[in-house]
Write a protein that binds this DNA or RNA. Structure first.
Lengths: 302, 302
DNA sequence: GCAAATTTGTTCGTATGTATT
DNA sequence: CAATACATACGAACAAATTTG
């Protein structure tokens, strides 16, 4: 009887959810009912439910009840560009084509264009002096009306002076801004560099993505720096910051040659990762059970 | 006075932490002290502290107190391979070279080799029949004795029959297994495909990485399928599953040409992502404040 | 539109158990 | 062993949100 009561109750409820007795959207018994069922105080019941909500298994709605959380079929974004089609690459335009093929309906907000003094995180990416002016284009994207990503791209001001005036238009650029720069200025993106990190959502992000306000669900931040050629080698000409909720997105990058049929439609093959078993008995990459006492040995690239 | 008391207290403590009044490792006032300070009941104080722990800001230790959480300087893994050096690619060997250059001491467990009937998630990756035998090599990696990643690679059994017998040895393969297959069988990895996803850690993973047992901190799962050439085009010959704790890792992928000086030492330029401000006043990619009522408009690739 | 019933959210109080120093 | 500090558990009351009559 070493296990806390609230924990035991939480496990029983978890098994009912994962076992399928309670499907997504179903209502759990109310606190009063649970209290009778388990012969525990209301606070103990609430601790058990709290355990479930913290893990995202259930969702409580004041005045209504507690419900089993819906889970999304994750959407897959291909980060590496497809050399042939030029699509993919996690850009809005290419990714949207993938979405359409999957029978989902993508949509996007009207771009919000801003000219601002480059803050440090933009200046560093574009390798310009902090305080230089930059253009930023901000767009929110949706899949089936569900918020999917927020993207901000920053360009140096000189691109406007050279003639890429559409960057200042608060409207979609057909084919994407990179293609536009190519055909307008002959500016070619010869390469890019993505940085991927996982962090807690900010308050506004949590609100936009309708994430629980306790920071349980992370967001994936993809920071892309696009490079063009110059006499001194590749130099950055754009920095794109895209934020995705981690609970409904996966990412793919390709390198070298690989089966062609995988190049597109990554979205269709979403993947459920093997997890080591909650009960330590599943078949996944398991076996760290003895990890506590084991000491690492030096080996390899020492 | 619309805000709950526990929330208000939590915000005050958060500001003290983020403002630097309380540094990493510092002890918070005890529950009893906080109770006097804020003139609230112990349960209310505990709710406030719970709010902080859920977000990973503080850590409670029974019998000792509550402490401001340490935060790691994230380690950066380059996922895309460097064509020149052949390093990088998130593989143990290449990544370890990066770590060494940074002045950290990497180490790894002795590989655990297993021959097993391929479960579905491996069979799908290697495109073999479920139930076929595969070799798996499992290794735990550490940086400065801190658990950093768990990696499992699966190979089809036929590689052994063709002569790559070292795959069965429970010891490090100098230069990595891919290089070994190259020089032993002439098997070249012509490309690979990474799938990146974020999920809650399993129980064993949480224990190994010393993550809080409530699933707050996610893990990043990187699934790499390596391809070799054949008459029928590229076919997979290995599947590598690597799991990293999301709170101390970032990832980089390169594509096309980009500045050479960024190819290596990605670890040195870790990146703090811009977040929209908790108080809605920071300079980051902000402005979703009005998101609640805004309707998406159809545009772009519709 | 209003009132009642239902359900979760917050806050207080108190007691006991467990881990650490 | 004793003191300290967090963990669990009970009970009670009122507030806020939602649905229903």
């Amino acid at each position: 009887m070493a296990d806390p009561i609230y924990w035991t109750i939480a496990q029983e409820l978890r098994e009912q959810i994962e076992g399928g007795d309670l499907g997504p959207g179903d209502q759990l018994p109310t606190e009063l009912e649970l209290r009778r069922t388990y012969n525990a105080s209301r606070n103990t019941i609430r601790d058990a439910v709290k355990w479930l909500t913290t893990r995202g298994l259930v969702q409580t709605k004041p005045g209504q009840g507690t419900f089993v959380a819906q889970q999304f079929k994750p959407f897959v974004t291909t980060l590496s560009a497809d050399r042939d089609t030029g699509l993919g690459g996690g850009e809005g335009y290419g990714a949207f084509a993938e979405v359409s093929e999957r029978g989902l309906t993508p949509s996007a907000s009207v771009p919000r264009v801003e000219v601002l003094i480059a803050p440090s995180y933009i200046a560093e990416r574009l390798r310009i002096a902090e305080g230089t002016q930059v253009i930023t284009r901000r767009q929110e994207r949706f899949i089936n009306k569900m918020p999917w990503s927020v993207q901000i791209t920053a360009y140096p001001m000189e691109l406007i002076q050279k003639g890429a005036v559409d960057l200042l238009m608060a409207q979609d650029i057909p084919g994407g801004a990179v293609a536009y720069l190519q055909r307008t200025l002959g500016l070619e993106e010869v390469g890019h560099r993505d940085r991927i990190l996982v962090r807690a959502p900010g308050q506004d992000e949590a609100r936009f993505f309708k994430l629980p306000d306790d920071g349980r669900v992370s967001v994936v931040s993809v920071i892309r720096t696009g490079y063009r050629d110059s006499d001194e080698g590749p130099i950055p000409f754009r920095a794109t910051f895209t934020v995705f909720p981690a609970d409904r997105n996966q990412f793919v990058t390709n390198s070298g040659t690989f089966p062609r049929e995988l190049a597109r439609a990554a979205s269709d093959q979403y993947y459920t990762a093997p997890t080591d078993g909650e009960d330590g008995e599943l078949d996944g990459p398991d076996g760290a059970a003895e990890a506590d006492g084991s000491q690492p040995e030096d080996s390899g690239a020492g």
